[in-house]
């Protein structure tokens, strides 16, 4: 049976000491959607993403995360078995291994798919290497494969991280503020790549964003968090600056780009047309 729900989180709560990072969070993301997750810093976006990624277990008996029909955690226990590797993750700080080459970092995406012994010994086949190289070409950085990943710019590192998730061939991609550490033009490129992956490969994308402009621009649906709770889940178009001010009070300012940059985001052509390659900006 075709599973229509990609990610299903129900009644998930998480406390760190006195901080309630998640409070009874429930969301469903359907296959093929590209959904934005917004919220001021400290609202629980990263915590939610880490739970969906299987990096952290929730509190209590009620919380449950189901990924493509496989339970990945329930009642505070992680079930790494079949859910492992089915969600590809991109992080704010890229999280590449700086001393390894870009190609090796991308090949790491194979580890969950190839036989254990082969991945452990680093014996990747020619076709796996070719796929890693074409993933790098696809995100617009084909010429950096042999460089140490620490030598890349932030935008290039984030695109290498995306190439790793392409090699992983997960049907779900979640990204935790993938553009917060980037300048506006690198940020656009990374968002374009994510949008292309979503439309061309039909990969479900959940992307947390600090700034609502990008959510309006790239995602039909936005989930908004505040103090560990979901405060809005619906069309991104409804998220006017006025509505944000209603949701967040003064904190809404931090979610809206300064007018000059916002102008730049609005002036973008509508979504990359699909087969048009994503170019890189050095």
């Amino acid at each position: 049976m075709m599973q229509m729900i990609a990610i299903s989180v129900s009644n998930l709560s998480k406390r760190y000491g006195q901080t309630r990072a998640l409070e009874n969070v429930s969301i469903d993301v359907r296959r093929g959607e590209m959904v934005a997750l917004i919220g001021a810093s400290g609202s629980g976006k990263s915590t939610l993403i880490r739970h969906i990624a299987g990096l952290e277990a929730g509190d209590g008996e009620t919380g449950k995360v189901v990924v493509l029909g496989e339970v990945s955690q329930t009642a505070g226990r992680l079930l790494r078995g079949r859910a492992a590797g089915r969600v590809a993750v991109i992080f704010q700080q890229f999280n590449l291994v700086g001393r390894l080459s870009v190609l090796t970092n991308v090949l790491i995406g194979n580890l969950g798919r190839v036989p254990r012994w082969r991945g452990t010994l680093g014996l990747f086949s020619r076709s796996e290497k070719e796929r890693a190289e074409s993933a790098l070409a696809r995100v617009g950085i084909p010429h950096v494969a042999t460089q140490r990943s620490s030598t890349l710019s932030g935008g290039q590192q984030q695109r290498a991280a995306i190439a790793r998730t392409l090699v992983q061939e997960a049907e779900i991609l979640i990204a935790d503020e993938p553009i917060s550490a980037l300048d506006p033009s690198s940020a656009r490129r990374v968002m374009d790549v994510l949008a292309t992956i979503n439309t061309q490969d039909n990969i479900t994308v959940l992307v947390s964003l600090h700034q609502v402009e990008y959510a309006r621009r790239y995602c039909k649906r936005t989930i908004a968090m505040r103090d560990g709770r979901i405060v809005y889940d619906g069309p991104s178009t409804a998220l006017s600056n006025g509505f944000l001010a209603e949701l967040y009070g003064d904190a809404s300012e931090e979610l809206v780009l300064p007018e000059s940059t916002a102008e730049l985001v609005r002036a973008l052509p509508v979504r990359p047309s699909g087969n048009e390659p994503v170019h890189m900006l050095a």
Binding site: G54, L55, G85, F91, N95, V97, I108, L111, T120
Partner: peptide
């Protein structure tokens, strides 16, 4: 980086 590798399903 180790967490990122864990999410690929690595042992």
């Amino acid at each position: 980086p180790v967490e990122a590798i864990r999410t690929t399903g690595a042992s």
